[in-house]
C-alpha cells in the first residue's frame, strides 16, 4: 500500500467523519451564522468545486469544431437536466450519456 495515499486517505477520512458527525450532534447553533469564519465556510465548497470543474474541463478544451460541439452538448445537458430535476446524480449521468452519445455520433 502506498504510504502517502494511506496518510492522505486517513486524514481526509477522519476530517470528513468529524465534519459530518460533530456539527450534527451539536445542532443548528453549532456554527457561526455571520463573520469571517461563516463566510469562509460558505465560500470554500463553491471555490473548490468551481476550481475542480475548470481544472477537469481544461484538458478537453480544443479548437476543433467537433470537440467543441461534443463538450457543449455535455455541458448543456448537465445544466438542462439539473434545472429540470434539481438532482446532482441525474444531471451527472445525463451529461455523461449525452457526451458519450455525441462522441459516438460525431466522432
Amino acid at each position: 500500500m502506498n504510504t502517502d495515499l494511506l496518510i492522505v486517505a486517513v486524514l481526509a477520512g477522519l476530517a470528513n467523519y468529524a465534519f459530518r458527525v460533530l456539527p450534527t450532534r451539536m445542532g443548528s447553533s453549532a456554527l457561526p451564522q455571520t463573520g469571517p469564519l461563516a463566510r469562509f465556510l460558505a465560500a470554500t465548497g463553491p471555490a473548490a468545486i468551481a476550481t475542480l470543474f475548470v481544472a477537469s474541463i481544461l484538458p478537453a478544451l480544443s479548437l476543433v469544431p467537433r470537440e467543441i460541439a461534443t463538450l457543449a452538448i455535455g455541458v448543456a445537458s448537465v445544466v438542462a437536466i439539473y434545472f429540470i430535476s434539481r438532482s446532482v446524480v441525474a444531471a451527472t449521468l445525463a451529461g455523461s450519456v449525452a457526451y458519450g452519445l455525441a462522441v459516438y455520433l460525431l466522432g
Binding site: L52, S56, I57, G74, Y82, T92, L93, G95
Partner: peptide, 15 residues
C-alpha cells in the same frame, strides 16, 4: 462518457 463524468459531477455540484 465515463471520462466526462467527472466534469459533469463538478458542474452539477456547482449548480
Amino acid at each position: 462518457a465515463l471520462g466526462f463524468m467527472l466534469p459533469a459531477l463538478f458542474l452539477a455540484l456547482l449548480l
